[in-house]
Design a protein around this nucleic acid. Structure first.
Lengths: 213, 213
DNA sequence: GTCTATAGACGGATAGAC
DNA sequence: GTCTATCCGTCTATAGAC
């Protein structure tokens, strides 16, 4: 035993992974600063002290870089949501879980507008996340539906409703008050409204039924 | 009196207005077919049988064309909302008014994805509606707040909440089921939820008060 | 792996003849 | 008003030397 193996083949792999990391960080920085549309290979390369064609040693195309950013963003969001989860007491009420989840999500979006646009609006000229990149986003969606299930909300239609409420809040927030809280401060109100709605409707639906056995 | 004057100076003005109309129609058609990002002066011009530079006789820049499209879209949306308004009986319940307004709006968005993106998402590379173009969108927003006022909803915060609900429904619909009704069919449910929420909260707020006189 | 050089395409906008 | 010709900028991506 000599050195700490990182993955496949020792140090060159590690060095390579570090360069990839630098490229992605430079891309995030550039996107945040100049907008997602201004992301060009030339500029990314310049930030890591390279010439543009050298990037092709690390990524086969610009789309691959965007895919990597998309996955990176979802991974970071996963960390945020996990830390929210860990900070909650084990017996936290479902209402509180939902409020804190959504609040953290909106905060995550507000922290970087370009990242928000990349991850949550499909509005980038010639790009769509690849299928494998897209899969990386499903874990975070899963966390939302887990929390909803804790609140007794299991109907898929109600999940759709909840995603629409969340998407609407964050979209209005990002578009009209990106650094404020004009919409995000209503998260608690919206969650109450939503849970009351689903609960009371379930109650109504349950009344006519007389048991299935 | 000879001929029907259209605006300033007789026939040349009318002919000019008609060409402008043709240009905008060609632009809508191109955007719907090839996407908003593919809108190029060359392609627009080709569709009206011109060369690209000739467009500069009608618009000073590409941004001016986008502004005109934005205003045109808002004008058409105004027509749609007005016809919904006229079709409603004078004594229609506020709940019904809201449902039909939002349903019509979502239908309008679904009818043309590119138009939706131009009018309602600020996600076009280097363009923002000019201030005067933006003003053309306020009339339609006003219609929503008028209907909300009929339902007793006057608090600005509640208006924000309602725009978030609407924006969320339409965004999810456009992004995930552009030709279906997975979200739009829940408009009635959402309106009920919203109106119940505002009404019951107002009731709670009114209880502790004992009159202001 | 990194570089220089460049291909190849597309974009908005302008000059100036007709 | 419309055209041709063109400027000048952007971009991704590739070829090939080192």
């Amino acid at each position: 035993m000599r050195t700490t193996r990182v993955s496949g083949s020792s140090r060159v792999e590690a060095r390579r992974a570090q360069t990839v990391r630098e490229i992605l960080d430079a891309a995030w920085q550039l996107a945040a600063q100049s907008g997602l549309d201004a992301l060009s290979l030339r500029e990314i390369a310049a930030r890591v002290g390279m010439q543009a064609p050298s990037l092709y040693s690390y990524f086969p195309s610009k789309a691959a870089i965007l895919d990597a950013l998309f996955e990176d963003g979802n991974s970071r969001l996963g960390d945020v949501l996990a830390s929210v989860h860990e900070a909650l007491p084990a017996n936290a009420a479902p209402r509180r879980r939902l409020v804190e989840l959504l609040t953290a999500w909106i905060g995550f979006c507000q922290a970087d507008q370009a990242r928000y646009r990349l991850m949550f609006t499909s509005a980038l000229p010639g790009w769509q996340p690849s299928e494998s990149a897209y899969r990386s986003s499903l874990d975070n969606y899963q966390r939302l539906s887990d929390y909803l299930a804790l609140a007794g909300v299991t109907d898929p239609g109600d999940l759709d409703l909840c995603t629409a409420l969340s998407a609407g809040l964050v979209a209005q927030q990002m578009a009209n008050d990106p650094h404020g809280d004009r919409w995000s401060r209503r998260v608690g109100e919206v969650v109450d409204m939503f849970l009351l709605h689903t609960a009371s409707r379930d109650r109504r639906a349950a009344r006519p039924a007389k048991g299935t056995s």
